[in-house]
C-alpha cells in the first residue's frame, strides 16, 4: 500500500509534466488518500501542493486556492518555513488570478516576511514584484511605487536584468 502511494505520486507527476492535468488530479487524489491512511503528513502536504498546481492549469482557481490553503496549514504543522513561503506565494498568485487583490496582498506579505527571515533575496524580489502589481490593481500607487523600487533594488543586487 505504501508503494502504491508513492507510485500514484510519481504517476501524477508524470501526467502533470506531460500536460495531462485531469489524469494528474486523479492520481494525486489517490496519493492523498493513501497518505491519509498512513498519517503521512509530509506526503499529504506534497499531494495537496501537486493538486493545487494541476488545478491552476485546469483553470480551476478556487479549487487550487483550497488545496494551497491545506498545503500551507500542513507546512506550518511540519514547521517547514521554505515550504510555507512557497505556499504563500502560490496562494498569492492564485488570488491574483481570481482578482481578489486584498487576499493576494495578504499572502504575498506573508511570503515576503518569510523570505526576509530566510534571507532569500530572489523570493523577496518576487514578493515585491507581486505586491507592486497587486497594489497597482487596487489603485494604491504609493505602495505600488514603494514595492517597485524595492524590486528594482533587489533585481540589481542579484543581477536580474530582465
Amino acid at each position: 500500500r505504501a508503494a502504491q502511494g508513492r507510485t500514484y505520486g510519481n504517476l501524477g507527476n508524470s501526467h502533470y509534466l506531460l500536460g495531462n492535468f485531469q489524469d494528474a488530479v486523479l492520481a494525486h487524489e489517490q496519493r492523498l488518500l493513501i497518505a491519509k491512511e498512513f498519517g503521512d503528513r509530509a506526503a499529504e502536504r506534497r499531494a495537496y501542493c501537486n493538486l493545487g498546481n494541476a488545478y491552476i492549469f485546469l483553470g480551476q482557481f478556487e479549487a487550487a486556492a483550497e488545496h494551497y490553503k491545506r498545503t500551507l496549514q500542513l507546512a506550518r504543522q511540519l514547521k517547514d518555513r521554505a515550504v510555507e513561503a512557497q505556499a504563500c506565494y502560490s496562494l498569492g498568485n492564485t488570488y491574483t488570478l481570481l482578482q481578489d487583490y486584498e487576499r493576494a496582498i495578504d499572502s504575498h506579505l506573508k511570503h515576503l516576511i518569510i523570505a526576509q527571515d530566510l534571507k532569500d533575496r530572489i523570493g523577496e524580489g518576487r514578493a515585491c514584484w507581486s505586491l507592486g502589481n497587486a497594489y497597482t490593481a487596487l489603485g494604491n500607487h504609493e505602495q505600488a511605487m514603494s514595492f517597485a523600487e524595492k524590486h528594482l533594488e533587489i533585481s540589481k543586487e542579484i543581477g536580474d536584468r530582465s
Binding site: 506534497r46 492549469f57 488570478l97 482578482q99 518576487r126 502589481n133 490593481a137
Partner: peptide, 27 residues
C-alpha cells in the same frame, strides 16, 4: 485602462506559472 491594468497584473503571475509548469513535489 482596465485591460492595461490586467496585463500588468498578469506579468508576475505568468512568470510564476512558467516556473510552476515544470515543478513537481517529488516522492
Amino acid at each position: 485602462k482596465c485591460f492595461r491594468m490586467h496585463a500588468i497584473q498578469v506579468d508576475s503571475v505568468q512568470r510564476w506559472m512558467e516556473d510552476l509548469r515544470h515543478m513537481t513535489e517529488v516522492e
